[in-house]
Structure formats: C-alpha cells, structure tokens
Simulated scan of single mutants.
Amino acid sequence: MHIVNEWGDAPRTEAHEGNEPYPTAESLRAQSPQFWAHFPPFDERTLVETANLIHPIFAASSGRECADRLNELISEAQMSPALASEAWAVQEVWHTARPDRVLLAGATLSLIDHLRHEPDASRLGVCEGDACADVYVDQSPAGRRQYCSLTCQNRNRTRAYRAHRRAAAQS
C-alpha cells in the first residue's frame, strides 16, 4: 500500500502533492531492508507505473472487477505459478517472464495472498476522506472502514461538524 499511496498519481493528485518530489526509492529499503533485499533497485518511473497499475484494484466496485483487474496484472507481468520443493516441503512459487515487472508481480502476489486469507474484496478500499485517495486494507472486526487513517477520519468528521454548525447558525 505504501507504494500506491506515495507514488500513485491518484493519491498524489487528490492530496495536492502532484508537484512535490517523490520519496526516494531508498526510503522503501530503509523501512524493510530484509524484504527489499530480494528485489533489484527500482527507479521512480517503475514505482509510479506500478502504483498506478495497482491502485484500481482497491477502487474496484465488485469482487468480479477486483478479480478481473488482478488477472490483467498477472497477464501484464507474464506471471505463472509452479510448484517447488525443498526436501519434503512442497510450495507454490510464481515466476515472471518480464524482469522489468518484478515489482508489479510482487505487489500482485501480495494482493492475491491477502485475498487467499480474506477473500472479501470489499475490504480493499480507497479513502473516502476529502482530498485523499490513499488505499487501505480493512482489517477491522466490523469490516466498515472508510478511511486510510484516523487522521483522515478525524479531519472528515471535523469538516462535517463545522459545516453542520455553520448551517445551524445560518438557520
């Protein structure tokens, strides 16, 4: 999600950050060095392109649309499943025929893995806050999350409260 929210055009535009510089690719490695050690360095163009391809998954209006978009990404990255074994342990692995799409393949597999454990695609979403299009994964018990963060939720509630008070004062 961090890649989508920091490098995606929709979240940056909605937050009026379109003219600001992108975070450095090194900032990803600094957050989780062990994870990113498995990937080659990425340039800004690859991060932006991947974020823009992943964002629509979170904006899908149905499970079918989510699945269709994931299938498009599997095709785009030319991904294929296989089985591998180490001693007696057999596990699923995926390969990509496009080394330039390894980040897209990794992000797609992350979403697929999430949906394996939580198949309700409605729990993937785009923030409903004003001036925000960040994505989130709803892990709340009730499954009713609408905002990417408490900051966006509080900001939206404050705006609604102030608008209600202004309307009441004008009446």
Score class of each variant (00 low, 15 high):
residue 102 V to N: 02
residue 94 W to T: 00
residue 22 Y to D: 09
residue 112 I to K: 09
residue 74 I to G: 00
residue 41 P to M: 12
residue 126 V to N: 01
residue 72 E to V: 01
residue 65 E to K: 14
residue 8 G to V: 12
residue 167 A to F: 01
residue 34 Q to M: 09
residue 125 G to K: 07
residue 123 R to W: 07
residue 10 A to I: 11
residue 5 N to T: 02
residue 41 P to H: 15
residue 122 S to Q: 11
residue 109 L to C: 03
residue 140 S to N: 06
residue 106 G to M: 04
residue 136 Y to S: 00
residue 155 R to T: 12
residue 146 Q to L: 12
residue 97 A to H: 04
residue 130 D to T: 09
residue 159 R to Q: 14
residue 114 H to D: 01
residue 49 E to C: 06
residue 37 A to Q: 15
residue 46 T to L: 13
residue 168 A to D: 05
residue 37 A to C: 11
residue 146 Q to A: 11
residue 66 C to E: 06
residue 129 G to E: 08
residue 61 S to A: 14
residue 152 C to Q: 04
residue 15 A to V: 02
residue 159 R to V: 10
residue 90 V to P: 01
residue 84 A to Q: 08
residue 126 V to I: 11
residue 2 H to P: 00
residue 69 R to E: 07
residue 16 H to M: 07
residue 163 A to I: 06
residue 13 T to N: 10
residue 160 A to C: 02
residue 33 P to V: 14
residue 78 Q to Y: 05
residue 155 R to I: 05
residue 74 I to T: 04
residue 127 C to H: 10
residue 98 R to T: 03
residue 21 P to W: 12
residue 16 H to G: 05
residue 74 I to P: 00
residue 167 A to S: 05
residue 158 T to H: 05
residue 168 A to N: 08
residue 115 L to K: 09
residue 11 P to N: 06
residue 147 Y to R: 00
residue 55 H to V: 13
residue 66 C to T: 15
residue 116 R to K: 14
residue 96 T to C: 04
residue 38 H to V: 09
residue 2 H to G: 03
residue 130 D to P: 01
residue 65 E to C: 02
residue 22 Y to P: 01
residue 41 P to I: 11
residue 159 R to N: 12
residue 93 V to E: 08
residue 103 L to W: 11
residue 19 N to K: 13
residue 155 R to Q: 08
residue 168 A to C: 02
residue 80 S to H: 11
residue 9 D to G: 04
residue 161 Y to L: 02
residue 1 M to I: 03
residue 84 A to L: 03
residue 154 N to I: 08
residue 122 S to C: 01
residue 142 A to S: 15
residue 139 Q to C: 09
residue 87 A to V: 09
residue 147 Y to V: 01
residue 119 P to C: 03
residue 131 A to S: 09
residue 164 H to V: 00
residue 43 D to W: 12
residue 63 G to I: 04
residue 45 R to T: 15
residue 171 S to E: 15
residue 115 L to A: 05
residue 81 P to W: 10
residue 26 E to L: 11
residue 34 Q to L: 13
residue 82 A to D: 06
residue 39 F to W: 15
residue 133 A to K: 13
residue 70 L to D: 01
residue 5 N to M: 04
